[in-house]
Design a protein around this nucleic acid. Structure first.
Lengths: 242, 242
DNA sequence: GCAAAAGTGTTCGGACTACACCCATGT
DNA sequence: ACATGGGTGTAGTCCGAACACTTTTGC
């Protein structure tokens, strides 16, 4: 790297103020959940600043002595109340014109969660936090539409090569729920018998020996993921074409 | 985002000096090539600065008014002479301790090229630029060992889901060369007849109606990629398990 | 002839598709 | 009875793994 960069005064003063943020660098989170057979996205409404009143991906500034992941966790929790989530890094977005008035590069993170497990608590600079159906999104701030699309494409790709659903479905679920999850993400209709067999053959799910309750039709069997198989398949990858 | 961030004096002075770099943010490139049936990595030896004399991934600082991709291109060309390369963004690496003495987050880029097409011209802050066999790498600066491993894992993943070779092989190549490329990346031995058939069935390659020259055995047929099929498969993705 | 790599053929089993069909439960 | 979703069976096809085999060329 270039040794001619001056690292003197600025650097020293920055380490003296732990809340000092890194200029020109932010984080944004693309958080998906699955509810009522629909894919959803977590958005926040800005309560102050240049984007006040507009919807955007949850995000913000990184502190000088903070790991990227920690910053993403902190921001997500402070803005929406959502915590203890496995965040995955997507990609940096850094076009010179993506942010008004100054140069800001943002690093996008990605997560899949069960919205039922979290109560949303808008906080920090967020006036509101809400789940939006992926088919009915508002127009977003900055280049967040683009980042969201990127995250959705990534999810579609991911679902074809890794098991998915562990973080999106309740602990016990039916095969139809799993199928509807795949259908919602891939935007296709799948054949039930073949889907069942394909999943069963993977040894990915375990029969809970329990039935659905209070349904107005034959009660379906409940299943849960076999965590060790799930993790193995996640690591090795597989092919799930339809 | 946080509106309380002060963007006053620093910002204005930065836009007045176009060569001003962004503090705390750098770029590093993981460049692969394929030569003599071996996978290779492009490295530079630092000629100045805190890493002087050590080998590292080609990289450096981003200018204030420069797109991320442009910065990656510029740095790669100035350091090594390699230009006109399709660079793909990998991921940001931002641990607080990854760079000595100050906080630097680096964005890693990835490319596959034919080393035969490029003469290396070390320049800028690089004292040397060289191709290294992936099996015989020196110890690298900062966390570049980690970034390189990440790039290699990414390549292994990529090769299973996308066609590869267009950028790594000469225009006309034999099926054995293509097979050896896959073998080098995946570190496995493949069955020749089955490999042939699999590739042929994809309609990915076109018979050049030419033979190898000056080989001490039966001359193999030469093939070239069908660019339209290649791009379609790249977009759609496929499955290449062995 | 022999080495080395090119290239073809054949068998077998597993996996995916498409679709018909029966089962259980609430209204 | 019938609607709704749960769940099984089956015939046909395609594809990949394994491996034996023939062809071409230089030495």
């Amino acid at each position: 790297m270039d040794s001619k960069t001056k690292t003197g005064q600025n650097f020293i003063s920055e380490t003296q103020y732990p809340d000092k943020i890194i200029e020109a660098l932010s984080i944004d989170c693309v958080i998906f959940s699955f509810k009522n057979s629909h894919l959803q996205i977590l958005l926040v409404k800005h309560g102050e600043g240049i984007g006040k009143g507009k919807w955007a991906l949850p995000g913000g500034w990184i502190k000088y002595n903070e790991h990227l992941d920690s910053a993403a966790y902190r921001l997500l929790e402070h803005l929406t109340g959502v915590k203890d989530v496995y965040l995955e890094q997507l990609q940096a977005f850094g076009n010179t014109d993506r942010y008004p008035g100054k140069r800001v590069i943002t690093i996008a993170f990605f997560a899949l969660i069960q919205s039922e497990n979290y109560e949303l608590h808008p906080g920090f600079t967020a006036a509101d936090a809400k789940w939006f159906d992926i088919q009915q999104l508002p127009d977003l701030l900055y280049d967040h539409n683009r980042i969201l699309r990127f995250g959705y494409e990534y999810l579609k790709l991911k679902v074809r090569h890794e098991p998915i659903g562990f973080n999106l479905l309740p602990e016990k679920f039916t095969l139809l729920q799993l199928q509807e999850l795949y259908e919602a993400i891939l935007e296709v209709k799948l054949d039930k018998p073949n889907f069942r067999r394909k999943i069963m053959k993977m040894n990915l799910i375990i029969d809970c020996k329990e039935k659905q309750q209070n349904v107005s039709h034959r009660a379906a069997n409940l299943y849960r993921f076999d965590e060790s198989v799930y993790n193995r398949l996640k690591k090795e990858g597989f092919n799930f074409e339809f």
